[in-house]
Amino acid sequence: MLTMQFLVTGILTGGIYALVAVSIVLIYKATRIFNFAVGEMLALGGYFCYSFVVWGGLPLWISLPGALVMAVIVGALVERLVLRPLLSQPLLTIIMATLALSVLLKGIMLMVWTGYDVGFPKNLLPGKTVLVGMIAMSHELLWAFGITLVAFAGLAYFFMKTRTGLKMRGVSEDHELSMACGVNIVTIFAVTWMLAAVMGTLAGFLMGYRLALAPSYTPLLALKAFPAVIFGGLESIPGALIGGLLIGVIEGLVGGLIDPNLGEVSAYILLLLVLIFKPEGLFGLKRIERV
């Protein structure tokens, strides 16, 4: 019974990790950049939503889309001001730029929202804890899981059906070939960053609503998503979902049955093993260079 509870909680929490993971994967897939600023971008998104709700006094169904719009703007700005001047520079330099960006965004958050914790007002998301037998499922986590599934369904639709989505898949396959086919890859990069910012914002809102927001620890949520990304494979969007859920389950089960203290580190130990024995991740493309 307890095991079931740990499993269910793990899956539900894993949904939030999956959102962060997909934000990393989207950018990596299209541009080969590992975005170190993902934590700060998601925290920023959470703060936008907070500002709409608390400062603006708006209901959630306006605030959350509003925050997503802001996220799109931030994503576009980041791409335009930081990434575009660095196009065709060495990859490590660009990764370094995302690192600098993370510090910059932290500074902005400290200036606007101060370093003190802030919390969302309660009952933004209706409902209460669902009990199935002895297994409790918090409505917040259920909502989070629902939002994650919707977001992933949206992504799937976007990549399967829309023209931009198809172009993005093309770009992630081969930059030069896509350019030769008339795809404006700079625009595609911008769209990628916007999408990643949107996914991050959802995670930031859920994290902030679940706990509280602070520039110091909200970005740390990204650290939970790193192993999820590798489990799923850096280039696979369904992999990000499954990787996220898997990390949630590992944390839940190891933490619950052995020692909660082991939860996080066990994910990293497993990550190390996966990298040694199945280096492309569970769903990554086999074409990654192996030695």
Binding site: Q5, T9, L141, R210, L220, L221, G256, P260
Partner: peptide
């Protein structure tokens, strides 16, 4: 006696162990 990390956003696991 349970310990948790600053970035753990869900303590259900810990609290279930305490509940038992």
């Amino acid at each position: 006696q349970e310990l948790f990390g600053v970035r753990d956003l869900d303590l259900t696991t810990h609290m279930v162990r305490i509940r038992s």
